[in-house]
Structure formats: C-alpha cells, structure tokens
Design a protein around this nucleic acid. Structure first.
Lengths: 184, 184
DNA sequence: ACCTGAACACCGTTCAAGT
DNA sequence: ACCTGAACACCGTTCAAGT
C-alpha cells in the first residue's frame, strides 16, 4: 500500500542487482512490496514502461557530454561503461529501452553533435556516434554475460580480463579511427 | 512424430522469421510440428540448447576468416552483418548463444589470430577482436530493433539509414584505428 | 527409442469490485 | 485515487506411462 513509481523502480533495481534480469518480474516485484501484481498497473502501463524507468535510473548518474568535449570521448565512454556495470544486467536493460527510444531522444545524439562540431561530415558523425554507442554497450553486455557465466561456473575461463581496460582499448582504437577520418 | 534435431531447428527458424524471437517458444514449435511440447525434450536438453543449434544454423553460411586475410576484415564484417540480418532477431539469437560460448570456441578467436599475425600485441589483438565483434553484433542488433519498431510504427523515423552502409562506416573507422595502433 | 498426457511452478495483463 | 481478487492465456520443464 502507498505505492509510487519511485518505490517500485527502487524495488525492481534491488531485485535486478540481487537476482538478475530474468527474476525481475511483475509478480516478484509485487510480492516484494507485499502487494498484488495488478497494483503495479495503476502506476505503470506495462512492464516495458517500468523497465524504461529503471533504465533512466541507471543512467541518472551519467553526466551529459557537453559542447566542446569531443576530446573527452574516451573518458565519457568509460563513465557510461562504468554506470552500466554498476548494476547486474545493466547493459541489457538499457539496451532494450534504447531500442524503443527514437535516436533524437537518446544519449547517442549528444555524441553525434560533438563529433559534428569537431569537423566530421554529418553522415560520418551519425555513423560514428552509433558505432561508439554500440561498442560501449556491447562491451558492457559481454562483460555482464561473462560475469554471469562465472557465477554459474559454466566456463573455465583462463582470462582475468579487466573489462574496464578492454573497454578503453577498444574505445581508443575507435577514437583513433575517428581522428583519422577527420584529417581526410 | 519422426522428429529429429534438424526438423526442429528448421521449424524454429521459420517461426523466428515469421513472428520474431518472443514467439519462438517450445510450445509453439511443438504445436507447429503437431507434437507435444515434451517431445522436444527428447532431442534437446533445454531451450538454450535448441537456440544454440538455431544460432549455428544462422552462422552456417559464414566463411571462416582464414590465415593472411587481415586486410579483408571489412569485407568479413560485412558478411557477418549480412548473415545476421538475413533472419529476424538473428543478432539477438547469436549474441545470447555467443555469451555462453567460451571465447576460445567462438568466431572472435579467428579475428584475434589474424590481428596478431598482422603485428598487433597479443593483448591489443584480443581487445580489438572483441571490439570489432561487439561492433558488428551491436549494429546488427540495433538494425533489427529499428526494423521491429518500424513494423509496429512506434516511431516516426526520419532516417532512411541503410544498415549496411552505416555498418561499413563504423567498421572502416575501427579498422583505421587498428592500422594506427599497428604503426606505433 | 521415441512420444503422449498430465502436472508443476511460473509468466504479463485485464477488469470488476472493493475502500 | 488506489488497491484486491480472480481470472485469462500463456510460459519452460519433468516424468510416469504408453508404443
């Protein structure tokens, strides 16, 4: 009783971190809040809408990439990566929500604008922004999946790969490629 | 009756292409084959195992990146992208399966080997291979998601973005970055 | 060896009805 | 305005039993 959107989102995040995305179900959230599943539907029209709010919460600490910061792309990418890895399955949640968000309203747009400022053609800026975003999300998703595989020790992994290092390596490569394109 | 693994996989692929991944359920496949759901479990231990076979089928047409082909990375990436987009939700299926595959047995390893041959350090070759794979998978996943959004016309998209063009743009950037790293 | 039938423990969502 | 209770149409998986 006395529910509100924020309480529900917080509860969902707790379940996410503790048990993972497959366990984030409407019934599970409801039961954790000692409420009927149908009660959630007064506050959210669907599970998708609830997950969108969860994704927003995950991205809340992420600073905007403001004007003139095209040189800090690597830093910003690392921060996005860090924010995603702070929650279990964070990358998957954000990705599933970003999929339904028009590009114009997503975080990719600010990257595109910085790249356009820094002298890329509009078309290349768009492609590069999309690529960089997918690269960071993809690395985070892979890291999450490895984390899960290790929990179930399905795999005997030889690598003690640090996700943050690998992320920075790949982003550095991509940014070097962008700089190359700029000078042509 | 008279089921076998191949028949089941083919049926699953048909449902995938026609209705999308959410509709690929054990019960749905069984009913399409006029069989009880439990019958599938004689041939596959779980849905995961079935999906792994589906992913293998999707990747079947993909040529291996053989020795000395590091210069054809762009071409190979385009082929992988193409294979993924040939089936609805293809990228998602392959990604979910690749997540459970040890790196040593996945398609990423061959990329890593080519890059190592071409003069990258072992560590960088590993990162770059992972990044390139995630980039291609990520672009394919995004393209799939846009395709779906357009089917439900959730979004009024301004872009007539060609996925293949964008893919090649981003891969070209990444490969340029790799070449840069090689010459240092 | 290969499949049926029935069950178990779940899902998301809807909707009349209560307070 | 906000929540309960009950239902609907689904899931993946197991397992005794049939042939």
């Amino acid at each position: 009783m006395n529910l509100n959107r924020h309480t529900i989102v917080t509860c969902a995040l707790t379940i996410l971190d503790t048990y993972g995305l497959p366990d984030v179900t409407m019934r599970r959230i409801a039961s954790a809040l000692s409420v009927q599943p149908s009660a959630l539907y007064w506050h959210f029209a669907s599970k998708q809408e609830l997950l969108a709010a969860v994704a927003e919460e995950i991205l809340h600490d992420l600073p905007r990439l403001s004007s003139g910061e095209s040189t800090r792309l690597r830093l910003w990418a690392a921060r996005l990566h860090g924010v995603l890895l702070r929650h279990r399955d964070g990358a998957e949640v954000v990705w599933s929500v970003l999929a339904l968000t028009p590009w114009e309203e997503g975080i990719g747009l600010t990257i595109e604008q910085r790249l356009a400022e820094s002298g890329l053609t509009a078309s290349l800026a768009h492609s590069a922004a999309q690529g960089l975003l997918n690269l960071v999300l993809g690395q985070a998703l892979s890291a999450d999946q490895r984390r899960q595989a290790q929990l179930l020790n399905v795999t005997t992994l030889t690598d003690a790969d640090d996700p943050a290092t690998t992320l920075d390596d790949t982003v550095a490569i991509f940014v070097a490629g962008i700089d190359q394109a700029r000078s042509c």
